[in-house]
């Protein structure tokens, strides 16, 4: 990557709060037209990273937007090349159309064009019928659509998205994610997208940064990062079970190149009559998927993906004994 193809470049970006680093990013770059997802658990520093990159939070280090380094006096001009969508749509106390128009006014768009563009984008996001309603009177999902319309209407070259759909219901979230993906592709807008949702990251971004405690754990193609964590912390955040040498021996897993710690995806583990004895600790239910958490004799726990409806079975109640096996071909060996 070089300056000519970079929409955003962050170098040694650091934010300190109460005497400790809450963000410490040596280097992150987003190409022109590329979407980069910042994936991490709550409190990982995703929002801090986005705010610092969007020049909305004072930070040490360098932020370069389309080849121009942010320095005193140019922040407002650089911000006008970008737009930000927050988790809280934060619509102003005016009509929905005025909410879009005010952003356009900040970008120097004149009166008649302002109205045309506001109406065009409200239409594209499916909220044209709300144009005359007060910003505070629309629902969460609608507000987020208005917020997206406001962001895209100014034709940003770079978009910052801070968990924009975290506050809306599952169905709306799925729809909005799909629409956002289409809009980003159609407009060719570069984006830095913060989320804690793996599937959202996978759908929207070809590349992913895994962030934990304000530091990047792993950067790479989304499919690789999500399937092949490189460290214990990355594996645990991605939902893998991390097993030590004793558990690996128990399960008959043969270490590769002397590495003895294994990350097992829930889909790589199964209940198997010929497997190793384990004790059920608890069941967990997610959106359409379930997990059975069992403890091996070695003390490590392992999660097994199961259809939710099977988890009601009395034989899988906490404290019951089951037999477990692991698909060795899907084991990820952890060097760190």
């Amino acid at each position: 990557m070089n300056a000519g193809t970079s929409a955003l470049a962050l170098h040694y970006l650091r934010v300190r709060r109460a005497g400790r680093d809450v963000l410490d990013v040596p280097h992150i770059e987003v190409d022109v037209g590329e979407t980069l997802a910042v994936l991490g658990p709550n409190g990982a520093g995703k929002s801090t990273l986005l705010l610092a990159a969007a020049l909305l939070l004072p930070a040490d280090g360098e932020v370069t937007i389309f080849g121009e380094m942010a320095r005193r006096g140019v922040h407002v001009r650089l911000r006008r090349q970008t737009a930000t969508v927050f988790q809280d749509a934060a619509l102003l106390d005016m009509t929905v159309r005025q909410n879009v128009e005010i952003a356009l006014a900040m970008h120097g768009v004149g009166g008649p064009e302002r109205r045309t563009r506001a109406e065009e984008w409200l239409g594209r996001l499916g909220v044209a019928h709300l144009a005359r309603q007060r910003g505070h009177a629309v629902s969460g999902g609608e507000a987020q659509r208005v917020s997206l319309a406001r962001a895209f209407a100014v034709r940003p070259r770079l978009l910052f998205l801070d968990e924009p759909f975290a506050g809306v219901d599952h169905a709306t979230r799925a729809t909005l994610t799909g629409e956002l993906r289409a809009l980003l592709a159609a407009e060719g807008t570069a984006a830095l997208f913060a989320t804690h949702d793996h599937s959202e990251a996978l759908l929207l971004a070809p590349r992913v940064v895994l962030l934990d405690a304000g530091r990047p754990l792993q950067v790479g193609p989304a499919t690789d990062v999500l399937a092949r964590p490189e460290s214990d912390r990355a594996a645990r955040f991605l939902g893998f079970s991390v097993l030590g040498p004793a558990s690996c021996t128990l399960l008959g897993l043969r270490p590769v190149d002397g590495v003895t710690r294994a990350a097992i995806a829930p889909e790589a583990a199964r209940l198997d009559a010929g497997g190793v004895l384990a004790t059920v600790r608890r069941v967990e239910a997610g959106a359409g998927a379930g997990r059975l958490l069992v403890e091996l004799a070695s003390g490590d726990s392992i999660a097994i993906a199961r259809p939710v409806e099977t988890l009601r079975d009395a034989s899988l109640a906490a404290g019951r004994e089951v037999r477990v096996a692991v698909d060795e071909a899907r084991v990820v060996w952890l060097a760190r």
């Binding site: 705010l51 969007a54 909305l56 930000t84 927050f86 934060a90 102003l92 952003a103 100014v154 910052f160």
Partner: peptide, 11 residues
């Protein structure tokens, strides 16, 4: 969030 949004709009 309102303060951030206003500044993010390029005000």
């Amino acid at each position: 969030a309102l303060h951030l949004q206003i500044r993010a709009m390029g005000a």
